[in-house]
Design a protein around this nucleic acid. Structure first.
Lengths: 120, 120
DNA sequence: TATAATAGTGTGCAGCATACAATATAATTA
DNA sequence: TAATTATATTGTATGCTGCACACTATTATA
């Protein structure tokens, strides 16, 4: 008990979840394949499990946010994903909303509980 | 089709989800009751459904992050929630991680897909 | 009676994590 | 050469968590 970290991990899990989509989409202005995304995002501080990423990529493709094509010229066949036009629109809007969320959250965090209101 | 907004909404839903916890906890350095949190957070840009908040508050209390007490002196009985010591620890750590996530995400967003590496 | 304030519950659905399976290549060893 | 291991690469199935939505319940007030 008193293991604050356990609860932390759970909340963080939830917190990171939503950020995966935006992280993945951000990297697909140029074609990438799943495996490269996993390692690349990991290097940049976004840890994504393969078992999370692959279904995500497929879902996004199904939704029309991504397009894919197999490259069988290389040693091993790789499935490259790329943002569609719709995907770019979605990503742009997503970024706008993301910034708004970050702003709201930061505001809350900075005046944590301090009940500041100008109308006194 | 081509309704980018539908997919956007889904991703945004996921994105906001994780932020609810941190938003709620941030407001509980001083006692608040559920209903006031809903309206207060809403004013500050974090929309939370009552059906989301109440279970969340109870879960957090069960996890020891919050403590609660009924105030029956006022007109209607209100259940006030407040951060416990553990809750404060968790919140502090949460903020640290949150900032880290924001930094990573912002970095990805800014160099979206531009494969910039200094070793080139 | 109707409405607002306040708290609570139950169900459904989405989606990540975990673990697992499958294939192909490259490197290692016997 | 053959068997073994490691790595690259994609994929699937199941379980758990938790939000959204819709709903119920209670009390105060008009």
């Amino acid at each position: 008990m008193s293991n604050a970290n356990e609860h932390l991990d759970k909340i963080l899990l939830e917190l990171r979840r939503g950020t995966i989509s935006i992280g993945v989409l951000s990297q697909l202005y140029e074609p990438q394949y799943g495996y490269s995304l996993v390692t690349m995002l990991s290097e940049k501080g976004i840890h994504v499990e393969p078992g999370t990423l692959y279904p995500l990529l497929r879902r996004f493709e199904k939704q029309g946010l991504l397009v894919s094509k197999w490259d069988t010229n290389e040693a091993r066949p790789r499935k490259y994903y790329l943002l569609s036009e719709t995907g770019k629109e979605v990503f742009d809007l997503l970024v706008v909303e993301w910034r708004s969320i970050v702003a709201s959250l930061n505001h809350l965090i900075e005046n944590k509980g301090d009940d500041v209101d100008g109308d006194g």
